[in-house]
Design a protein around this nucleic acid. Structure first.
Lengths: 332, 332
DNA sequence: AACATTAATGTAAGCGCTTTCATTTGGTTT
DNA sequence: AAACCAAATGAAAGCGCTTACATTAATGTT
């Protein structure tokens, strides 16, 4: 691999000049620029990003920490981020935090040690306090899908509460009154916010939220499965169930059917997230849209703007969910 | 951030000694090791991975190029890779290739420019020739889900042909004789291999493969949708359809139902990949298991073994698919 | 033509480590 | 106590760039 020395020698200019033309910026005469470019071409020279980082103290890399690398939501999110960042010539280092505090801290340290210029964090288990503290350090980061008032500028989040509200309200508008709820782990912000929204809608209709119709689950298909079974076992009647994400909704529908219940005739199901497969479930799932890809892009924009001083359009910090009406809910 | 100088000063030893204790390896007396560790502790020193990389010419990073960051398959794959690599202290830089030759080459160059020690490539559009050439360069890589005889040692692949065979054979064994096929883009190796397997099974049963019952699609739900519609329009009777992946199977089931056809009573559907959601479709999808996570792990192992000289268990280069029998196929 | 400005280029000092080779230390041997 | 040797440590030269500062060339002014 050719180095900048060889280029400078071949072009008959100094190191500094080569560096200048490689980095665009500063003034270099047309003539020398050409000479350098020819030499670069001839030697097939590619600057070493490592050496560049060391000298400039900027690694051009941003670290992403998500709970899992698989799963429809994280995939979309990373997809949005990577696209945005790569066109800007930045690269993306990823790590998984597995929704576990220790593992998440590990991941953050790992990424920081890797000299990331900034981090995009999707963390669930780590405390607000830790994050607030981190914000004081000189390691910039943006939080995705989480809102912490003290550092609101570092947050890009979905209005989950409103999403929960929308989901349940749609059910109520269609005549449902006995509505069960399969939640994600309630210690997770998004899960509890969504549930809060559910309660908002209920109380708007003067309905007292029945805690026994709540099943706290794990955001996974199998959890939806288990949820519906448990709920059914209580023998408390309900005509609809809202699931805090689409995967649990899939599990719930499956389990309901296994029990001989038809969806939506015997029981209506509402999801949340609007993952791609929601429209291919049977029946097609009514759900709440979570524009996660856009949020990923926005997080990337924030970094481009705040860390790399690239001009960017206005940053949106909180995104609004929207109801997506399909076939899994019927009218009473 | 403290540097190695400060540590060396505080501990009263030379740079080299600090470096030695940081890197474990070489002999340092207990006493000095302690002194150094104390200083490290006191200063909260973390070595700069950048400087380390520059000096040692090893970046401890491996680049991953997948077609898309979203999608159930890639997610599982990356998940397997990241887990394996991170426990070894390596980090993972990702890029997307979008199944497009130009974009894939871009991605490879991008990762190489980032000084990755090795690459894990899931590329579809790039030619064999290019990769064979690349193998001659000093940039090590492992190909995942692709087999090129000339560089077989760099390949970790699924026996797709056998998978296609298994899928269709299962249908044949259950009495189906008129079997439609919704394929992925046939220029993609995996798609054409799976189709070949389908033909293998057919000819084993003495059935002439009817080209009009083949629909070449895009591996996406919507493509399965379109596929079944087109196939139905031909008015050539068929009792079952095998889809070259589960997502298309979801689309196909959906579309069949929209046309008033019951699955599996009027039409049986077989998928491929065994994505997580396959078991939550309705009816539960019969499919062929693609152990993609294990393959990701294996790719990581290969790198750990071949690039970082870490001891690893035996490397498996070709993985075998397995039939997963569920409810979307009936017996004739 | 002499001088002041500004643009273009060069010099050299780092960036924070690793690593080779030389030197010192301390324990053994005779 | 002298001589020897292996183990421990240190000195210093890079790794391939960027960048502040110095120098030179080009242009404009009067």
């Amino acid at each position: 691999m050719a180095t900048i020395y060889e280029v400078s020698a071949l072009a008959g200019v100094s190191l500094a000049t080569v560096s200048r033309v490689m980095n665009g910026g500063t003034r270099v005469s047309e003539k020398t620029r050409d000479k350098v470019n020819k030499a670069v071409e001839a030697l097939n020279y590619r600057p070493s990003s490592i050496a560049r980082s060391l000298a400039s103290n900027c690694s051009n890399s941003v670290g992403i920490l998500v709970s899992e690398l698989h799963g429809p939501i994280y995939g979309e999110m990373m997809s949005g981020i990577e696209k945005q960042l790569r066109t800007a010539g930045k690269h993306v280092i990823i790590a998984a935090g597995h929704s576990d505090a220790v593992s998440e801290k590990d991941g953050i340290e790992f990424l920081i040690d890797r000299n990331c210029d900034a981090l995009i964090l999707h963390v669930e288990a780590i405390s607000d306090a830790y994050l607030i503290e981190l914000a004081k350090s000189k390691h910039p980061f943006i939080l995705i899908n989480r809102y912490i008032p003290q550092i609101s500028d570092n947050c890009i989040s979905l209005n989950n509460r409103r999403g929960g509200y929308l989901a349940t309200k749609a059910l109520l508008e269609h005549g449902h009154r006995d509505i069960a709820y399969i939640s994600g782990p309630l210690w997770k912000m998004d899960a509890s916010d969504r549930y809060l929204g559910h309660q908002d809608a209920l109380s708007e209709y003067g309905i007292i939220c029945n805690e026994t119709l709540l099943f706290e689950s794990n955001f996974q298909e199998e959890g939806g499965n288990e949820g519906i079974l448990t709920l059914l076992d209580t023998h408390i009647p309900f005509s609809a169930v809202v699931c805090a994400n689409d995967e649990m909704a899939a599990g719930a529908m499956q389990a309901a059917r296994d029990k001989g219940l038809a969806v939506p005739d015997d029981i209506s199901v509402m999801g949340f997230d609007n993952i791609l497969l929601a429209q291919y479930m049977y029946p097609k799932l009514s759900t709440v849209n979570y524009p996660v890809k856009d949020m990923g892009k926005m997080a990337a924009s924030w970094i481009l703007k705040n860390i790399y001083q690239a001009p960017q359009p206005e940053i949106t910090h909180v995104f609004e969910p929207e109801l997506v009406w399909r076939d899994s809910v019927n009218s009473l």
